[in-house]
Design a protein around this nucleic acid. Structure first.
Length: 769
DNA sequence: GACCTGCTGCGGCGTG
């Protein structure tokens, strides 16, 4: 394996106990607890965070996984608690986590510390008994570990008790803050925290966000305290990692060595044939045997990219173990697998000495405790540099061991006649670009806030139920003016309220006094336990074998009785389907294909695509490529020159034209819509736009015209985009409101002239802002 | 060309 950097970041300097330390400023019981742990010293991030949190105010603590962020927040907060002297007059510290599993981990971690400090510690999520919640609610005190949804339920169902329960609240800790930024769930959490401050008549309750290190931490600060990010203190821990070992390995889809063009028969392919997305089940033989050889015998994470691919690779590697008469050590892990099965894999990784490779989707990227793994493997380039960084942080945590990551990239065989997109080896080039971005310390900044009207609609109803009724002005002031929906002005808010009150929607009514009340349909929605979450979920079947639930399967991808599927890493035949109970019964069999899950499409950032062009245009050698990947890169670069993409971005191809604007997915989408609006047969894939039955001259003219025209307002472009209801309550929005959401969140019309200029190749070194 | 996350109140029944 190649070493790109022996230590990407400097090793932590050891603090000795002789130096003056933040330790001395902590309360006696907290110091005693640390002393009992036998810690040689506080970690870097803890030394830095303790004085800041003791001083009060909003704080973002950023550091890698397992750097001790939780203690960095709780050691000083429990010290603060000791000074206030605990009382049963309200909860003192609220900890919010995106995952129930994380709450269970943190409860274990904080139990002794809280006990030593005489502070009650409550777990509060859907798996916790109603009885325990009632007891905590009747005598509110100490620390509560809770999910956003349980917190929403508490506010909605116990609105009158909110002021009392939280009147003494000293601070809110938000774990995995980065996972909330720019999402519907993040908007909901910000809104809930704001509602608590208003209900308790507090101007501000300290917020402490725990985050992975992002490119620009000021955006995390803004997410912690919307509109007042500048007042948030940012504490960044040193990366206490041991460097990174990284390799990109290349494979050809049919198993022939890259560069061995004679082994393929591509010249027969018609020139206009678009590249075919390969079936997830196609794994090159060389890749299969390399994965088996490199991963077996130690513990690893293999990120396979999709749930279908997780099934294929887990099943394949398990049967390779069977054939070699080895015990199996490859196990699937994804969101549709039964919780019990996923917990078995997590426990085996954490507690079992036997080597274990979890074949996973993004489920194992977050902070769930799985202990130490030796290497990380990934199929394909993935979709973001941020996720690559998170994955890397999952290995190399043991002293002296560097993080190790291998990316396995599959490219189709090519010949002269193949499609330019195949010839450019864009998956390999994207993998290199992502690694180069990572080496440069860049990663995707969080998305700027959208309108989030679906979630605002939800918060209007939640606020009404919590308070028993509010006036439109009070609701706007609370949710939009001082709350997180700051992109929504009074006029737009009024339009949303009218839309909610239509005879079709019946979510709202207005009392003769002008108070907003819940309408007939609104009653049904807010009374259901499904109300509390703001993200949309698919309806699903349960897959059962021998009374054991293996997992769930989307209703939208039906399977037939007798059909064979790969699920939970094994092969099954569907023996019975009960549509009313929504249950699929299966029995073991020998054959099978992976199930079909619906994805919603990925968005690659502008900077990554700009870096891809730079990789193609340069002759820099990358020490982390294996020989096959090097040959693929050579092919890509000679195709790039061959197609003259170094000096132009529009090329004729077959009966049509290809445009390479070298911009991210959202801008590529926007230019495609603008071309559709001008009657072109346009579609985008693989970082390019294809125009059918069209010539290069006319394309250049049109691009020039778009580049020279003022940016459109986007309404017309948004109306062209198919607008499926993406967010949970989008179905209640009028066409006009839905178009506004699309305009703001899914296209970038204001950049259109610059995008077209880029596509003309006027100035390809200039990155569109 | 993708992934992930969450859930109350109450009626009915069995048991100590």
């Amino acid at each position: 394996m190649q070493v790109i950097s022996r230590s990407m970041t400097p090793k932590a300097e050891r603090t000795t106990s002789l130096q003056p330390s933040a330790f001395d400023t902590l309360s006696e019981p907290v110091r005693r607890w640390i002393w009992q742990r036998n810690w040689p010293s506080l970690r870097d991030v803890q030394e830095k965070a303790i004085p800041v949190i003791l001083a009060g105010g909003d704080v973002v603590i950023s550091a890698r996984t397992a750097a001790g962020k939780t203690e960095a927040a709780f050691l000083p907060l429990l010290t603060r608690y000791a000074e206030h002297a605990g009382s049963a007059d309200g909860f003192a510290i609220l900890y919010v986590s995106p995952l129930k599993a994380l709450i269970n981990d943190q409860h274990r971690r904080l139990e002794g510390l809280c006990e030593g400090s005489g502070v009650l510690l409550h777990k509060w999520h859907g798996d916790v008994s109603a009885d325990a919640k009632t007891r905590a609610r009747k005598r509110p005190s100490g620390v509560v570990l809770i999910t956003p949804e349980s917190l929403e339920a508490l506010l909605v169902r116990r609105g009158v008790e909110v002021a009392h329960m939280f009147s003494r609240l000293d601070a809110v800790v938000i774990d995995e803050l980065h996972a909330f930024i720019g999402t519907e769930r993040g908007m909901q959490l910000q809104s809930i925290l704001n509602r608590i401050e208003v209900a308790t008549a507090r101007d501000r309750i300290d917020r402490i966000g725990l985050s992975a290190t992002l490119g620009d931490m000021s955006l995390a600060a803004e997410a912690l305290r919307p509109g007042k990010g500048a007042s948030v203190t940012i504490v960044e821990g040193k990366d206490e990692g041991n460097g990174v070992r990284l390799q990109i390995r290349g494979y050809l889809l049919d198993g022939t060595a890259p560069g061995d063009l004679t082994a393929t028969a591509d010249d027969r392919d018609p020139p206009g044939k678009p590249p075919e997305p390969f079936e997830p089940s196609t794994v090159p033989a060389a890749l299969a045997s390399d994965l088996f050889r490199l991963l077996r015998g130690q513990s690893n994470l293999l990120f396979a990219g999709s749930r279908a691919n997780v099934e294929v690779y887990a099943d394949m590697l398990r049967s390779m173990c069977d054939e070699a008469s080895f015990p199996n050590e490859f196990f699937p892990h994804h969101g549709n697998l039964a919780r019990a099965m996923r917990e078995e894999v997590e426990a085996r990784l954490r507690d079992d000495p036997r080597p274990t490779t979890a074949v996973a989707t993004t489920t194992l990227e977050l902070g769930i405790d799985i202990g130490e793994v030796e290497t990380i493997a990934q199929i394909g380039p993935g979709f973001s540099v941020a996720s690559l960084r998170q994955r890397l942080g999952r290995s190399g945590r043991r002293a002296g061991k560097p993080a190790a990551l291998r990316m396995f990239v599959i490219e189709p065989p090519i010949g002269k006649g193949r499609h330019p997109i195949d010839r450019l080896r864009l998956d390999l080039v994207q993998s290199i670009a992502m690694v180069e971005c990572l080496r440069a310390g860049w990663c995707e900044p969080p998305l700027p806030a959208g309108l989030h009207l679906s979630t605002l609609l939800h918060q209007v109803m939640a606020l009404i139920v919590q308070t028993g009724g509010v006036s439109p002005t009070v609701a706007w002031n609370l949710l939009c003016e001082r709350g997180p929906f700051q992109a929504v002005d009074r006029t737009l808010f009024a339009e949303l309220l009218r839309c909610m009150a239509t005879p079709e929607n019946r979510l709202l009514e207005q009392s003769p006094q002008g108070l907003l009340m819940i309408g007939e349909t609104g009653e049904k929605i807010t009374e259901s336990y499904e109300f509390y979450a703001v993200f949309a979920t698919e309806r699903e079947y349960r897959i059962i074998h021998d009374a054991r639930t293996l997992g769930t399967y989307p209703l939208s991808s039906p399977v037939a009785c007798g059909e064979t599927i790969i699920f939970a890493g094994r092969r099954w035949q569907v023996s019975e389907i009960d549509d009313r109970a929504r249950v699929i019964m299966v029995k073991p069999t020998r054959a099978g294909k992976p199930p079909h899950f619906n994805g919603k499409g990925a968005a690659v950032h502008d900077h990554v695509v700009a870096t891809m062009r730079a990789v193609l245009a340069s002759d820099e050698a990358y020490p982390y490529l294996d020989p096959a990947a090097n040959r693929l890169l050579d092919e890509a670069r000679s195709s790039f020159l061959d197609l003259q993409l170094d000096s132009r971005s529009v090329i004729a191809h077959g009966e049509g034209v290809l445009i390479f604007p070298w911009v991210g997915t959202m801008k590529l989408q926007t230019l495609t819509l603008a071309l559709l609006a001008r009657e072109f047969k346009a579609s985008h894939f693989g970082h390019a736009i294809e125009l059918q039955e069209c010539e290069a001259g006319k394309t250049l003219e049109t691009l020039q015209d778009i580049a020279d025209s003022p940016a459109p307002d986007g309404k017309e472009l948004a109306a062209r985009l198919a607008q499926p209801a993406l967010a949970k309550f989008d179905t209640f929005l009028s066409d006009h409101l839905m178009t506004l959401v699309t305009m703001v969140e899914r296209i970038s019309a204001k950049d259109l002239p610059l995008i077209a200029a880029n596509a003309l190749g006027i100035d390809t070194t200039h990155e569109v802002a």
